[in-house]
Computed example of a mutant assay.
Amino acid sequence: MSIHLWRAGISVLAIALVPLSRTDAHEIVGNRFFPATLGIDDPGVNDELSLPTVDSFKTGDVPPVRQRDISGEFSKRITEDFAISFGSTYTFLRPIDPTAAGANGFQNFETTFKYRVFKDPAHEFVMSVGLSVEWGGTGAANVGADPFNTYTPTLYFGKGLGDLPDTLSWIRPIAITGQIGYAIPARRSTTTISVDPDSGDLTADAEFHPSVLNWGGTIQYSMPYLKSSVVDLGLPDFVNHLIPLVEATLQTPLSNTFTSGTQTTGTINPGVIWVGNTFQVAVEALIPINRQSGSNVGVIAQLHLYLDDIDPRGIGKPIFGPAVQPASPFPRN
């Protein structure tokens, strides 16, 4: 397909997706605000910038390696319901052995296409679908970046419990979000040829690249929701901006697992988000679920900017569609 036809196809798709209703900032469904989370993607479609996200942990290698990442992601709405995001990560690898050499470099560049397919304000439910592409060869091989593309179709969802009866009012600030994706590598295996220095014999070693189920979820308790939609306890303003949560991010190889095995790895991430009107700050612990997932507790933190509220008629406006209507993350009765 020529580049002109490709551009024309994208334009037709974008115009077809232009909404007839007005656009709201953030992912607010009824009275429920779904914040951006660190381990999995939130279920919404927004104009936003995560910069920076930083983490530090020890890998599950034997011996383990100290890994530190600095990453950023920019998401831009094409229409009210369709957005494209771009992300990149710079990795520092430091062996525990001080005499061993470390490595620095970018991971592969990533692009995600995301479309919100359903939104039910009365039941605080939202669902989106997406396709993430990791562009092979755009990162450094010495930090583990693959030379081939990986495609991950993903389902995202979020459900607030605000539709529960008043007898369960203390549970209503709870929300659950989740995602399920299937990462498909463009190359099934890589064969490496080595030469025995003594005999001169050639040896071929094959590494198989599995397809992996990426899955996870969050449980959140929104203090802004508690104050605005349940009861005002007269707590300090700082506390009323907090959303404590626990995330789980897990990976399970499902096919082509001859060299990888099928063991699930991942982390459980307890933490907290402080929500403002135009930005949020979050920090979480990274607790490995097994030895293969890591050798100690790590940490991740993020500054996240709401571009749709910072500049609702400029960079925060969908390319096709009306300007966003500023919408506070703090719901009102």
Rank of each mutant, 00 (worst) to 15 (best):
I10C: 10
S11T: 12
V12Y: 14
L17R: 02
L20K: 11
S21E: 14
S21G: 10
A25C: 05
A25M: 01
H26C: 06
N31E: 14
F33D: 10
P35D: 06
A36C: 01
L38D: 01
L38A: 04
I40W: 01
D42V: 02
D42C: 00
P43S: 08
P43C: 05
G44C: 12
V45L: 11
N46V: 15
N46W: 04
D47I: 00
E48G: 09
P52H: 11
V54R: 07
F57G: 01
D61I: 00
V65R: 09
V65I: 15
R66Y: 13
S71I: 00
S71R: 02
G72T: 08
S75V: 04
E80P: 00
D81H: 09
D81F: 04
F82H: 05
F86D: 01
F86Y: 12
G87A: 12
S88G: 09
T91G: 06
L93C: 02
T99A: 15
A100D: 13
G102S: 09
G102H: 04
N104Y: 07
N108A: 07
E110H: 00
Y115G: 00
R116F: 09
V117H: 04
V117F: 14
V117M: 14
V117T: 14
F118R: 01
K119Y: 00
K119H: 04
P121L: 02
A122R: 05
F125K: 07
V126S: 14
S128T: 08
S128F: 07
E134P: 01
W135N: 01
G136I: 12
G139P: 05
A140G: 07
N142L: 00
V143F: 01
V143G: 01
A145R: 05
A145T: 04
Y156C: 06
G158S: 06
G160S: 04
L161P: 09
D163C: 00
P165S: 06
P165N: 12
L168M: 13
S169I: 02
I171F: 15
A175G: 14
I180A: 15
G181Q: 06
I184Q: 07
P185M: 07
T192Q: 06
I193Y: 10
I193Q: 09
I193H: 08
S194L: 07
V195E: 15
V195H: 09
L202M: 08
P210S: 10
V212H: 10
V212A: 07
N214I: 00
G216F: 01
G217P: 08
Q220A: 12
Q220R: 08
S222W: 11
P224A: 05
K227S: 11
S229F: 12
V230M: 03
D232E: 05
L235N: 12
P236M: 13
D237R: 10
L242P: 13
I243A: 09
E247W: 01
S260P: 03
S260L: 00
G261E: 10
T262R: 14
Q263D: 15
T264S: 13
G266Q: 10
T267M: 11
T267K: 15
I268Y: 10
I268L: 14
P270N: 08
G271L: 11
T278I: 12
V281C: 11
A285Y: 09
L286E: 15
N290P: 04
N290Q: 05
G294R: 05
A301V: 02
A301Q: 01
L303R: 00
L303T: 06
H304D: 06
Y306C: 04
I310F: 06
P312K: 10
I315Y: 02
G316Y: 03
G316H: 05
G321H: 04
P326Q: 08
P326L: 07
A327F: 03
F330V: 05
